[in-house]
Design a protein around this nucleic acid. Structure first.
Lengths: 225, 225
DNA sequence: CCCAAACGGAGCGATCTGCTCCGATAGGAG
DNA sequence: CTCCTATCGGAGCAGATCGCTCCGTTTGGG
C-alpha cells in the first residue's frame, strides 16, 4: 500500500485520522439530532473544518452512505455473535440489546433520504439473513413467543432504537440527566424483551406485519400523482 | 354567555368552528411532523388561512399550550376510565393502550419548548396522580411485575407514543402503507405490555429511574455557563 | 342593503443549510 | 533550514424555510 504515491504528501496522516474522526462524529451527531443533523455540526464535533469534510466526502449524502455501511457492518457482526452463542434465547436478546445500543437510531432518520448503494444493499441483505436465522433458531427452540414474526422484531428494533427522553434532554443541553435517561432506556428494552419470551401472555392484536413494510422503507417516495 | 356582545357579529359561528378545527389539525400535524410542525401546515390542514389562526392564538406557543391542556384532559379521562375498570390489570393496560394511541407523541416534541402555564401544571399533576393510583393498584393486586416503578411506565408511555415507522412513511407520503404500520405498532405495544405482567422474567438492568427525569423534562434548559 | 367582523394569503425579516472558495498552515524532500 | 504543495479552516453565498404581520376581500346578521 505504501507506494510512491506519497512523493508529495505533506499532511497525509492527519487526513487519514480525520477520516475516522468524521465518521464517528457523524454517528454521534446523527444519534443526537436525528434528521436535523447538519454538516456544520458534524465537522464541529469532529474538530475539523467544513472544508476538510467536503474533501473526504463529495456530499452529505456520500458521508451518510459510508456511515450506513459502517452500521450495517456492525449489525452483521452483532448477529454473528448472537448465532455463536449456544443458548438461542441469550443469543437473540444479546443481539437485540447490542443492536439497540449501537443505534438503529443512527440509521432511522437517514432511511429514505439517501440513495441505496450496491454495497449498502448487499450488506443489508446479509444482515437481514443472519437476523432471520437468529429468530428462526429461537422459534425452533420454543423460547420465543410463537405469534411474533421477524417483521415484528425488526420494527421493535427500530422502535427501541431511539430514545425520546434522551433525545429531548440532549437538545436541551441537560447533560446532567443524560446518563440516567440512557439507563432508564435500557430498562425499557428489558421490559420489551421480556414481552418476547414464550409463555403465558395475551394475544397480539391484528395480523403480523407485511414484509413490504420493511423493504419499501428504503426506497425513495414514489412519484406522487 | 349569549350576551349582547354580538351586537355586531357577522361571522361568529364560522369562527368558533375554526377554533375546534385548528386544535384538531394541530394535533394531527404535530403527530406527523413532530418538532418540524409549522403553523402554515397546521392552518392548511385545518383548511383555514394563517391569518385566522393568528387571530385565535396570539402565537404558536399559545396554540401549543392550549393543545397541551387538551391532551392532558384526555389523559385524565383515560386514567379515570382505567380506575373505573374492575380488573386492575385490564384497567392499567387499557389506559396504556389508549394513551399511547391518543398520542403522547403529540406532546413529546413540544416538551421543553413552550412555557408551562398554571393550567398545564395543574392538569399534569392531576393526570400523574391518577396514573400513579392506577399503577399502585396493579402493584397491590400483584399483576404488575414488582421491579417496575411508575417512572418506568411513564417513560415507556413516551417511548411507545411515537412510531418511527409511521412517521417516516408519512414523511415520504407513503400513505398506502400507513395503516399497516399503525397496526404493526399496536403489536409492539402489546409485546411491551406483556413484558410488564408479573411472572417469570429476567431482572431489569440498573436501578429504577429517578422521578427527576420526568419532572425536569418540562422545565426550560438551565442557563448554561 | 350595508358595514364591521372575520377571512385568506402574499410577503417581510430573520434564520438556517449545504456547499464553494481561497488564504493560511505545516510536513517532508532537498 | 527552505520551500513547495497537499491539506486545513471557516467566511460567506445562494437558496430554502419559518413565524408572523398586514391588508385587501368576503360575508352574514341587523
Amino acid at each position: 500500500m505504501t507506494e510512491k504515491r506519497s512523493r508529495r504528501a505533506p499532511r497525509r496522516s492527519e487526513a487519514e485520522r480525520n477520516d475516522r474522526t468524521l465518521l464517528q462524529a457523524a454517528r454521534e451527531v446523527l444519534a443526537e439530532d436525528g434528521a436535523h443533523a447538519t454538516v456544520a455540526a458534524i465537522a464541529a464535533r469532529a474538530g475539523v473544518g467544513i472544508g476538510s469534510l467536503y474533501r473526504r466526502y463529495r456530499t452529505k449524502e456520500d458521508l451518510f452512505q459510508r456511515l450506513t455501511e459502517l452500521s450495517l457492518d456492525h449489525w452483521i457482526e452483532a448477529a454473528e455473535r448472537g448465532l455463536a452463542e449456544d443458548d438461542p434465547w441469550r443469543g437473540l436478546t444479546g443481539f437485540i440489546t447490542e443492536r439497540v445500543e449501537y443505534g438503529q437510531g443512527t440509521l432511522g432518520p437517514i432511511a429514505g433520504t439517501i440513495e441505496v448503494t450496491d454495497a449498502m444493499a448487499a450488506k443489508s441483505a446479509r444482515s437481514d439473513e443472519l437476523t432471520e436465522a437468529l429468530i428462526a433458531r429461537a422459534h425452533e427452540a420454543g423460547v420465543l413467543r410463537p405469534d411474533v414474526t421477524s417483521a415484528d422484531i425488526f420494527l421493535l428494533l427500530e422502535q427501541l432504537g431511539r430514545s425520546p427522553a434522551v433525545e429531548q434532554l440532549r437538545r436541551q443541553g441537560r447533560t446532567d440527566l443524560l446518563e440516567a435517561a440512557a439507563e432508564a432506556h435500557r430498562r425499557l428494552v428489558g421490559i420489551a424483551v421480556d414481552g418476547l419470551r414464550a409463555g403465558r401472555h395475551s394475544a397480539l392484536p391484528g395480523s403480523p406485519p407485511s414484509p413490504r413494510l420493511l423493504t419499501e422503507r428504503w426506497t425513495p417516495p414514489p412519484a406522487s400523482g
